[in-house]
Amino acid sequence: MSRAAETPRWVRAILGVPLIWAAARMALVSAFLIGGLTKLSDFSAAISEQEHFGLHPGWLWAALAIIIELGGSALVMLGWQVWLGAGGLGVLTAVAMLTANDFWHLTGHDRFMALNAFFEHLGLIAGLVIVSIHAAGSERK
């Protein structure tokens, strides 16, 4: 039995709607869009955030985050150079999870919260890899 046959026809029909794919890509990058726009609207707070997590110079890290969050999100949503947009977002997410979610240094409730956030970010990176794989497969067809 083929893998496609394992998925009910009605589910394949829904997943085949182009609007669903576009909405899923937008949802995947929504946190990056919000983050980039928020940093852009209050650049001094963005600098402070970067420096709070030990990233210096803060202005450089804040500017890079804005460029990657907005530019990478645009590439993923447009379906153009998805590997580049998703890759940039994935690397940014990895840096963020290693600096902001260092559960290995924490105890109690703080450790619990950071551990959850760490693995949520890891799942987000996996989603970015999956969208890149899908885009690469679409290019081959």
Score class of each variant (00 low, 15 high):
3 R>Q: 06
4 A>T: 00
5 A>Y: 03
5 A>Q: 11
6 E>P: 00
10 W>G: 00
11 V>Y: 03
11 V>F: 04
11 V>S: 00
13 A>D: 06
13 A>S: 05
14 I>Q: 02
15 L>D: 02
15 L>H: 02
17 V>W: 12
17 V>K: 04
19 L>V: 14
20 I>M: 13
21 W>C: 04
21 W>E: 14
22 A>T: 12
24 A>W: 10
24 A>K: 06
25 R>L: 08
25 R>E: 08
26 M>N: 08
27 A>D: 15
28 L>G: 06
29 V>G: 08
29 V>A: 07
30 S>M: 14
31 A>I: 14
32 F>W: 14
34 I>Q: 05
34 I>H: 13
35 G>E: 03
35 G>M: 00
36 G>S: 07
36 G>I: 00
36 G>W: 00
38 T>C: 02
41 S>C: 01
44 S>Q: 15
45 A>C: 06
45 A>D: 13
46 A>W: 02
47 I>Q: 15
47 I>L: 11
47 I>V: 15
47 I>P: 12
52 H>M: 06
53 F>T: 03
53 F>R: 02
53 F>V: 04
54 G>A: 07
54 G>E: 10
55 L>R: 11
55 L>P: 00
56 H>K: 09
56 H>E: 13
58 G>F: 12
59 W>Y: 15
60 L>A: 15
64 L>S: 11
66 I>H: 00
69 E>L: 00
70 L>R: 03
70 L>S: 02
70 L>T: 03
71 G>K: 09
72 G>C: 13
72 G>F: 15
72 G>Q: 09
75 L>H: 05
77 M>G: 03
81 Q>P: 01
83 W>V: 07
83 W>D: 02
84 L>Q: 02
86 A>L: 07
86 A>G: 07
87 G>P: 02
87 G>E: 09
89 L>M: 13
91 V>D: 01
92 L>A: 13
93 T>Y: 00
93 T>V: 14
93 T>E: 08
94 A>F: 08
95 V>A: 06
97 M>Y: 06
97 M>Q: 14
98 L>A: 05
98 L>H: 10
99 T>S: 13
100 A>V: 03
100 A>R: 05
100 A>W: 01
101 N>G: 04
107 T>F: 10
108 G>I: 08
108 G>A: 09
109 H>W: 09
109 H>P: 02
109 H>K: 07
110 D>L: 13
111 R>T: 04
111 R>Y: 11
111 R>A: 08
112 F>L: 10
112 F>A: 09
112 F>Y: 15
113 M>Y: 09
114 A>L: 06
114 A>N: 05
115 L>Y: 12
116 N>P: 02
118 F>Q: 01
118 F>D: 08
119 F>Q: 03
119 F>P: 07
119 F>Y: 14
120 E>G: 04
121 H>R: 02
121 H>L: 05
122 L>W: 07
122 L>C: 05
123 G>W: 12
123 G>Y: 09
126 A>Y: 11
126 A>T: 15
128 L>V: 04
129 V>S: 01
129 V>K: 02
132 S>T: 15
132 S>H: 09
133 I>W: 15
134 H>D: 14
136 A>E: 14
138 S>A: 15
139 E>V: 14
139 E>W: 09
139 E>M: 10
139 E>L: 13
140 R>Q: 13
